[in-house]
């Protein structure tokens, strides 16, 4: 465990909490992609299947449970909460998630560390996490006007990925046998997807004005 890894996990948790808090406080989920949230839940569930029999550390187990619980709560708010579900941007959130799930599943069947059910599901979750933000980015692009909290959410998620890259570099330098190229490549793709968004986010922040994405 190193400082980059811990920072990354905390940033990840913060991003989810920012979103939950926004929904809870404003009773609105405008601008948030339900597709992306459902994909993240799928990522967590397929990756953390081993929660019950592969105990690594209390740290890992607590984070796994918290990630699954908090993202389930976001989905519950968006689909079931009487006030919140009416604010969901259904007409703009039309990304077909099978376009992401099917290629990730096929790739996980072909490119994996070991051909076993749990290893393939784990690899699938790594690939899916890399692209799960796409429906959210498309929704932001369509609605143009990004409110502060939604902007912060995507920014924190991007920062979390950047810190994971630092963690890998650190581990590669300090642990003799550490190598995980499937995770590294997926992580690079995932972080790359945020770069365009980061540019506009930082520009808006520098000029301290509302974040607006170009058409």
């Amino acid at each position: 465990m190193n400082i980059f890894r811990v920072s990354a996990d905390i940033l990840h948790l913060l991003s989810i909490l920012v979103l939950l808090l926004k929904i809870h406080a404003t009773k609105s989920c405008a601008g948030i992609s339900l597709k992306t949230q459902e994909l993240y839940l799928a990522v967590f569930v397929t990756r953390y299947l081993d929660l019950f029999w592969n105990f690594h550390s209390l740290y890992n187990s607590v984070f796994k449970v918290v990630y699954i619980a908090t993202s389930s709560m976001i989905i519950w708010y968006m689909k079931r909460h009487r006030g919140v579900k009416q604010t969901y941007d259904k007409d703009h959130d039309t990304f077909r998630y099978l376009f992401l799930i099917v290629p990730c599943a096929v790739l996980a069947l072909i490119v994996n560390g070991r051909f076993s059910l749990f290893e393939i599901l784990w690899t699938f979750s790594i690939y899916l996490e890399a692209v799960a933000i796409l429906p959210q980015l498309v929704l932001l692009q369509r609605t143009k006007n990004v409110d502060n909290l939604t902007g912060n959410y995507v920014f924190l998620l991007g920062l979390y990925r950047a810190f994971y890259i630092l963690n890998w570099i650190y581990r590669y330098a300090t642990e003799p046998h550490y190598s995980a190229w499937i995770v590294w490549l997926s992580g690079l793709v995932q972080t790359g997807l945020y770069l365009d968004f980061f540019y506009y986010y930082l520009q808006a922040w520098k000029q301290s004005k509302k974040l607006q994405l170009p058409s």
Partner: peptide, 10 residues
Amino acid sequence: TGKGEAHDEL
């Protein structure tokens, strides 16, 4: 070691 190592990450 090797391929399984990233399993200790979240």
